[in-house]
Design a protein around this nucleic acid. Structure first.
Lengths: 247, 247
DNA sequence: AAGTGGTCTAGACCACTGC
DNA sequence: CAGTGGTCTAGACCACTTA
């Protein structure tokens, strides 16, 4: 009753070898696997592709496919967003990723609000809002894209929130100083295939078989106003998310 | 500079047509698309596969590929697990999915604790524990697998928790009656490609391009004991998850 | 029976890496 | 320059649905 496709069987065999530790470092090449298992090269490639979307291997174009030394980033909520974190002047991202992390390609600008931002912030579609975009690297690998929007009546042109470096404690510490401290958050998330621009910016080697987690977070003040909406796109193989809450 | 692969370009074109509403109902067949866009059938198929993993279309083997009308299920936390929910005798799943949902293939048994269960419940690896497994259908489509483990000293053989139908309010209402009401929860989640058995049980039509969200939830009592660990596997295209919390 | 999506081949070509 | 992964073809065959 082995009617499962050949690439799945091959993937299962390789997965087993990886999990038992028999396979480490560089995997056999696509062509080697194809010959050894008497299948076409595409079948061998699909088997590796499957293992990649499971997070077991990573591929480097032109170099090879490597067993992943599996250390997912644990992203904890609400711990990472507790007032103690940003109140103490920590970068919020520190709680996610530790000191291995870096922020790059920070872009700050004014843009017309896209639909989901307009809805969340309660402004008109296309009304100008503050736009902050950045990438997070861990061990020089891009693992997260973050695009944040804030209303201009709070984060005006003179504000520190317009600086590339927003200062100690991050965005939320600045919002608190301006009298708009966030007190509660909602995060909505989906998992999906990446779009082409995300493939490039997350260095994902093709969209087929890749998976991202999209998180849209809204930060609300005590007056129940949404003062920031942040959309994050995470390389799903790099993360594990934890949420803690009470009944 | 259109050096992006052909299947991505084709997918982009189709995606656009879907989002503007120009394409509804059944998509052109793989062979039609291949001929019309002067590409091989496999390229056309991969384009559709990409749209599928983005959640834009669903494929029915032998029938066709269809633009998805499926409203994503909003899974809210902690709202869905508040004491008000199960205390009032609601099924917990109701908060997720509404009355469209059904539970099928309920299996209750005693099994040796697997590694993650043993760790969470604080029992020895392989020690017998209560095992409850089920599938959730929404509009006759399987969207979630759920496998729950409980310690036998709480959920013993005589307990209502051993029944297939656990009664009004579900597992947590029974635990409360036994003096082990859960007061807090943690959920850990990852997104990944499905394993072969999950492909079959979630009716996913092949593992390539499919995405599942795996959630492992632990329920803790006031005495800080973990009394249930529940591992859920969700069809990622069917769900949107929301978590709300305070700073 | 005709049409559909899924698998698979045997090879070609390209882009990239690393010696 | 040899080896690698990624794309692509032109078709074959299979499993499945629909009528």
């Amino acid at each position: 009753m082995n009617d499962r496709p050949a690439y799945e069987l091959l993937a299962a065999e390789l997965r087993e070898a990886i999990l038992t530790g028999d396979l480490t470092g560089r995997m056999p090449s696509v062509r080697t696997l194809a010959e050894r298992h008497a299948v076409g090269t595409d079948v061998a490639r699909r088997a590796l592709e499957l293992l990649r979307s499971e997070g077991h291997v990573i591929t480097k174009h032109g170099s090879g496919t490597y067993v992943r030394t599996f250390q997912r980033i644990m992203r904890r909520s609400p711990g990472r967003l507790s007032a103690g974190q940003w109140g103490a002047g920590q970068m919020i991202q520190d709680a996610d990723t530790g000191p291995r992390a870096r922020q790059v390609n920070v872009v700050v600008d004014e843009t017309p609000a896209p639909d989901y931002v307009a809805e969340a912030l309660g402004v008109a579609l296309g009304e100008p809002v503050l736009y902050r975009s950045r990438q997070f690297l861990v061990e020089d690998r891009p693992v997260q894209l973050s695009t944040s929007h804030l209303p201009l009546d709070i984060a005006g042109a003179g504000s520190r929130l317009f600086y590339t470096d927003v200062g100690p404690g991050g965005t939320y510490a600045r919002l608190a100083e301006l009298g708009h401290a966030p007190v509660r958050f909602t995060e909505r998330l989906t998992a999906r295939a990446p779009r082409p621009d995300e493939v490039e910016r997350l260095d994902l080697e093709s969209s087929v078989g890749a998976i991202v987690i999209e998180i849209t977070r809204c930060a609300y003040t005590a007056a129940d106003r949404c003062v920031e909406v942040n959309r994050m796109v995470l390389d799903a193989t790099a993360y594990e998310l934890e949420y803690a809450f009470t009944a």
